[in-house]
Design a protein around this nucleic acid. Sequence first.
DNA 1: CTTATTTCTTAAGATACCTTAATCATTAAG
DNA 2: CTTAATGATTAAGGTATCTTAAGAAATAAG
Lengths: 188, 188
Amino acid sequence: MKDQFKNHISSYVEFNDEEIDEIFSKLTQKIFKKKDYLLKEGQVCKNNYFIISGLVRSFYIDNKGNEKITQFALENWWVTNMESYIKSVPSYSSIQTIEKTTVLIIDKEELDKLFKTIPKLERFFRMITENMLIAIQRRSDIYLQMKSKDRYDDLINNFPVFAQRVPQYMIASYLEITPEYLSELRRK
Amino acid sequence: MKDQFKNHISSYVEFNDEEIDEIFSKLTQKIFKKKDYLLKEGQVCKNNYFIISGLVRSFYIDNKGNEKITQFALENWWVTNMESYIKSVPSYSSIQTIEKTTVLIIDKEELDKLFKTIPKLERFFRMITENMLIAIQRRSDIYLQMKSKDRYDDLINNFPVFAQRVPQYMIASYLEITPEYLSELRRK
DNA sequence: CTTATTTCTTAAGATACCTTAATCATTAAG
DNA sequence: CTTAATGATTAAGGTATCTTAAGAAATAAG
């Protein structure tokens, strides 16, 4: 588990063993059961979560009372509500597990302290953030103009694992279509 | 103009005068005429642009040959194609001025060097990137589920300046609707 | 001022996607 | 094993938005 984390951050920035140890000492491991919440709407998100194993979703409740899934995240991904985490404001979205999930938790205050003792870590998180931005930008740019069918095909091609591990109606929510219509699309 | 830049970065991280001078010495000022390109599709984007005055748009050409506007940017905003800039791959989008625009240009290689001599600058760009991420995430999360009319109202309320300085058909493109339909919505 | 170019509006018919509601299939619980 | 709960499909009718095409209005160019 420590190896998994070490491999992950080392793929972006090189750290020596002491640095790894120091960073690792600030992390807390936690296991969430299926359907547990890492973050609930209305809370201020004080943590960034690194997923060791399992699968989670971010979602919010729209003005009609429907859940809107905005993100899935699995092994080796970081997940948080960026706006809540950065600005220390209540989160409009929740983060909930879809499967039993093991995470490493870093507290924002601890991380900010670490940035001062290990400046390279700041680089790591800048890079992670840039990559998130790229991914979200692509989704945002392209998904809005795509027809539902194309979004579905795109998802299936790029993340086949989701189709296997996530219920259809959640996929539909993520693609911004009704489960009924997704069902119709799949028939074709 | 130097003051404008100094005020901007100082609102995130404090720099002393020597630091400001060093950063500023790496910036190039450039004036683009209306409809000039800061970046053309297919090029690798090697710069990050800070807008002193004016207005630009990012857009790409979809598979039907239509321009899709994904972003506007004006005074005191940073603009680049993040994916192209970070990964040094050809950009799928272009950046073009809508008005005569003055920018400060920072070259990626120069910036990476500066990160080493002025580590605080890395913090500044991490923060900028986080804020971009938050903004794009909000747009991405919420716009996809909104009806066109709501997206339009949202834009007008939050960025009235765009309605004044950007042609209607570009607003339509940004909102992912046809100019004809936007026209119909406005009638109401 | 006059013409050309760009931008905006209107309307009719077509299509993508939604709503509701009912039924079927699968998994979890007693 | 039986029932309850959850997830997936099907169908009918409705609405949002697009397509095409044409003309009006505004701005730029000669």
